[in-house]
């Protein structure tokens, strides 16, 4: 179903969920849960948004049923650790590439995806100051390196 314009701020989280459907269904589940919660705050009034969110909720409920044996789904604290570890793993990979002067699409995407997953951590409560800084840095780095490569400059 096409994403209504009012829900555009969650489109990258939903794309990350799709990308992880097979690779890591727990990540996919929490990306969709974050998108659901954020989507309801963005716009649950207009008919097309409501329709979209109802479909997303259907998907979440069936995912939850399929994964009812996963601790990461049934226990919030385990889910929190799962997402945080995954986000930081992506951040560390991208940061190592950056420090090694190896600039490429993969590391940009890793920086950006780690920032999206740090957004998703908000599902579990307030972000720590450290994760807020990580998210800001990762998003800035992804944008900066992307723009450098696009204009043919070498990122510093």
């Amino acid at each position: 179903m096409a994403l209504p314009a009012q829900l555009r701020p969650i489109q990258h989280h939903l794309r990350t969920a799709q990308e992880h459907e097979a690779r890591d269904p727990v990540v996919a589940y929490y990306c969709r849960l974050y998108a659901m919660q954020s989507g309801m705050k963005l716009d649950s009034k207009t008919p097309e948004c409501r329709k979209f969110l109802i479909k997303l909720m259907d998907q979440l409920e069936s995912m939850k049923k399929e994964m009812s044996d996963h601790d990461s789904i049934t226990q919030e604290v385990v889910g929190n650790a799962h997402i945080e570890n995954y986000a930081l793993k992506m951040f560390i990979y991208a940061d190592n590439e950056d420090r090694g002067g190896r600039f490429h699409k993969n590391m940009i995407k890793s920086f950006y995806t780690s920032s999206l997953l740090l957004d998703v951590l908000c599902v579990f409560g307030e972000l720590s100051e450290e994760n807020i800084q990580h998210r800001k840095y990762a998003r800035w780095k992804a944008t900066y390196i992307h723009n450098c490569l696009k204009s043919g400059e070498t990122p510093q």
Binding site: M36, M40, S44, K45, R50, I54, M57, E61, Q75
Partner: peptide, 27 residues
């Protein structure tokens, strides 16, 4: 039709909020 539309909308919104709360409760 205006008021009917509005009440359908808010009923669906409430239902979504309840479903979300239920989804999270079982976590």
């Amino acid at each position: 039709t205006g008021s009917v539309g509005t009440s359908v909308a808010s009923a669906e919104q409430d239902e979504l909020s309840n479903r979300l709360a239920k989804l999270r409760d079982q976590m």
